[in-house]
Each structure stands twice: as C-alpha cells, then as structure tokens.
C-alpha cells in the first residue's frame, strides 16, 4: 500500500469512528437528518482534501457532485420545460410546470421545433439542421444584448461622467473618474501603437485598472472567507457540536 492509501483508509476509519461516537452520544440523530449532516460533512472534508493533493476521496466527491448536479439539472429541465411547459400544453394533462405551463400549443410550436432540431445532431445525415437552432439562439442573443449593452454599459456610464467639475472633494472624485475612464479607454485602443503620449496614457489606464482589480480582489476574498467560515461553522457546530 502506498502512503496515500494509508491516508485514505485512515481518514475513512477516523470519519466512521467520529460519526459512531456522535451518534452514540446523541449529538447526531440516527435518521435522515443525521445522515444528511454526515454526508454533507463527509463531502465537505473530501472536497477540502484537494488542498493536500488529488486523491481518491476528492475524486469520489467530485464524481458524486457532477452526477448529482447533472441529475438535478435534468429534473429541473424535465419539470420546468419538457413536461411542465410542452407536454402539459400539448396534451392538456397533469399539473402546470413552474413556468406556468398550459400555453396555447401553437405558441410553443416554433420553440419546440427548434429544440427538436437540436436532436438531429445525433444523425450524421441531418445534423446540419441543428445549425438553424444555433443560428436562431446566437442571432436573437446578439440582437437583444447589443441594445442593452448600449443602454447600460455605454449611456449608463456616460451620463454620470458628464457632470460639472467643482472645487470640492466631489469635484476631485469626478475628475479622477474622468481621467480613469479616458485613460482606460485609451488602453483599449487597438488601432494605434501604445507609444509616446498614447503609451503614457495607456499605462496610466492600466494603473487605474489594477487599482480597481485590487479593490475587487480584496472584496471578493473577504466574501470567500465568509464562505469558509460558514463551512467551518457547519463542521464544528452542526456536525461535531463543538461550538
């Protein structure tokens, strides 16, 4: 047996022992709730074991996670779309899906047809038909997204920047934002070589970007720490009852 195998077996034995003691002490109930806590604690530790290195425990948890997620998404798709929307609407049976269901079948004809065309990918001869669905998704997506981007990412950003500069802290803030926006825009210029004045402005733009990335990084790390605290709190309190 390798060292990893010893670690693996040792961990499983320790985990089983701890859970046996917890159940024997009455800290964990021997029912579905207790089993849920044990499974959640086991999965949490198995996933964290990746910090040591890739190992069978992590592989097991990873495969369970991927499988459960796939099954969950299939269930959601079946009940919300396939059954809840299409089958209920066409055959007027069962309960309505989460999205309302029971629509006029004619309304669903086109989307259903597009969905069925996707299944032609299983056929070598007719797989080209699936491109109609892809073209529809990409075309509609781009058509809907571009005006929204114009409104929220262009005009929505322009409007607050076009404000009067004043000799105050607010004015200084606005000036910094203005310089930041302009220099960052210059960084994203692809038509000119970043040399001379453009190069200096572009480098200033990178500084602005990096400062904002740093702030965003710190903010997100704090959020991730709170997630870690949540997991440790679960292990220490809900599972081990040490808190």
């Amino acid at each position: 047996m390798t060292r990893d195998s010893y670690v693996f077996v040792g961990f499983l034995a320790l985990f089983a022992l701890v859970n046996t003691i917890l159940v024997a002490n009455g800290a964990l109930s021997l029912d579905w709730d207790g089993l849920g806590v044990i499974v959640a604690a086991g999965c949490t530790l198995a996933l964290y074991s990746f910090l040591y290195k890739d190992n069978p425990l992590f592989k097991f948890a990873e495969h369970v996670y991927v499988g459960v997620a796939a099954a969950y998404v299939f269930g959601i798709t079946w009940y919300n779309s396939l059954y809840g929307e299409i089958i209920v609407s066409y055959f007027d049976i069962g309960e309505k899906g989460a999205n309302g269901g029971g629509h006029n079948p004619w309304v669903l004809l086109f989307p259903t047809l597009l969905g069925l065309l996707m299944l032609t990918r299983f056929s070598r001869k007719f797989s080209w038909l699936s491109r109609i669905s892809f073209a529809f998704v990409v075309g509609v997506g781009a058509g809907l997204t571009i005006p929204r981007y114009l409104s929220s990412f262009l005009l929505g950003q322009l409007e607050p920047s076009l404000a009067p500069l004043t000799l105050s802290w607010a004015g200084l803030n606005l000036f910094l934002v203005l310089v930041g926006v302009i220099t960052v825009l210059i960084y994203f210029f692809f038509s000119v070589e970043h040399t001379g004045v453009v190069g200096h402005a572009s480098r200033l733009g990178i500084w602005f970007l990096m400062v904002s990335f740093g702030a965003s990084f710190g903010y997100t790390i704090m959020a991730r720490l709170s997630l870690l605290i949540g997991r440790i709190s679960f292990l220490m309190d809900d599972w081990l009852h040490l808190m």
Partner: peptide
C-alpha cells in the same frame, strides 16, 4: 471609443459651465 473620449471631455466642460445639453442627449 474616440468619439466617447471626445464626448466626455466636451460634455464635462459644458456641464461645468452649466450647459447640460450633452448630458441630457446621452442620458440612459
């Protein structure tokens, strides 16, 4: 992008002198 930079500079100068025309024209 060049147009936006020009707009930002001109719009801010105008807004500083109390002319909000550009700000209103490009309001979301």
């Amino acid at each position: 992008k060049a147009l936006i930079i020009g707009l930002l500079v001109v719009g801010t100068v105008l807004a500083t002198f109390g002319v909000d025309t550009l700000t209103h024209l490009f309001a979301a």
